[in-house]
Design a protein around this nucleic acid. Structure first.
Lengths: 200, 200
DNA sequence: AAGTGGTGTTCAGTATATTGAAAAAAGAGT
DNA sequence: ACTCTTTTTTCAATATACTGAACACCACTT
């Protein structure tokens, strides 16, 4: 059975409407940053001055198409228009001897996580060590997931979607990870790769 | 005088409305992926079944607030809802001796790109080699950008937003890259790091 | 066959998005 | 102060977003 929806926080009147309202305020800020009048933005976007005025004062909730048009006219992406304030800055360090980041360690391979565990998991960074003959096989990740991999030591084969590539030291590869994929060490000695997993 | 708006491509009826329409189709796909009924999504999002049906069939253009609510109910960000389709699957290999991926090579450092050049640039992977005393200084990237870095050889200092950390071999770090940031080699020998840049 | 429940669409009514024109407000120049 | 221009807001009308209820269809059970 399909997983039921989470009790969605955006169901509450507050949050989605807050997002919408902050977009409206942002539009005015961006316009003023550029020293544009409502007329200028209107001509660039094809949205009436009247509507722009109402949007900026949070008196109307624009449709998606209108919002996209305004973003385009301002020369920014929707993502930028929608984005939240960045979280607090910090350099987070994972030391070489930090065993809490050992993700896996068995006869085939050892995996060490190089990105912080608590970050939003859209990109992950790993060091993978494969013993001779060792195989790391992965089931498909979410649709759209890709991986970048570079070989630090030894030689590996990368298999994705029935396609196989042989990589030597300092070679790198980008491939689909939303299908079954493997990394294999066909050699007589240990292989080490760095792996970036991009969930999308 | 303020820079005038570009002749905006989204001013044409096509493009913004195309974005809006593809979002509507996407909502149906995502709902069906989850094996949810319109009723389930309606209860999760607080948007009527009737409206969801019209949205999915591209008969209505949802307001921004309604779109945000649907995205939240589906458990995805607006950015994900708005993003384009992934490109075709393939293992793309960059060989060690491929000089077209040398991004920079001067007295301070050498940068080699490990991710394909033509991919959508939301994540990039680099190998950075710093000569003794060499400094790689970067101006702020787009807001929200972060970097992951791991040291393959030698020792480096990472500076971001006025904060400095010292990293040794096999240490790794995650830090903000939407502020001025630097990687420095304070040592007497060459240092090599792998760098993941995540634009967000 | 009849009844029940689930799913998606249609319908009719209400709310609000969106417009162009007019009015009001603000700014610039003499 | 006055005049003119630019900018923003208001207004009234039209279009459409959005709703809840009814309808249509399907699958399953008795």
């Amino acid at each position: 059975m399909a997983k039921e929806p989470r009790n969605s926080p955006t169901h509450s009147t507050g949050s989605a409407e807050d997002v919408s309202r902050s977009v409206c305020r942002r539009i005015r800020e961006l316009r003023k940053d550029r020293k544009w009048s409502l007329d200028t933005l209107s001509r660039a976007s094809g949205v009436s001055r009247s509507m722009l005025s109402q949007i900026e004062r949070e008196l109307a909730n624009p449709t998606l198409a209108v919002t996209v048009r305004i973003a385009g006219a301002l020369g920014i992406s929707m993502a930028e228009l929608l984005e939240q304030m960045p979280s607090s800055p910090m350099i987070e360090v994972i030391r070489a001897e930090d065993h809490s980041h050992i993700f896996r360690s068995d006869k085939d391979c050892r995996i060490r996580t190089l990105s912080p565990l608590h970050l939003e998991k859209d990109v992950e960074f790993y060091e993978v060590t494969l013993t001779p003959g060792g195989i790391l096989e992965s089931a498909p990740h979410f649709e759209g997931t890709r991986e970048f991999l570079t070989v630090q030591k030894g030689r590996v084969q990368v298999i994705s979607d029935g396609e196989t590539e042989e990589l030597n030291r300092a070679d790198s590869a980008s491939y689909r990870a939303d299908v079954t994929h493997q990394i294999r060490n066909p050699g007589r000695s240990e292989a080490v790769v760095f792996l970036v997993v991009i969930y999308q």
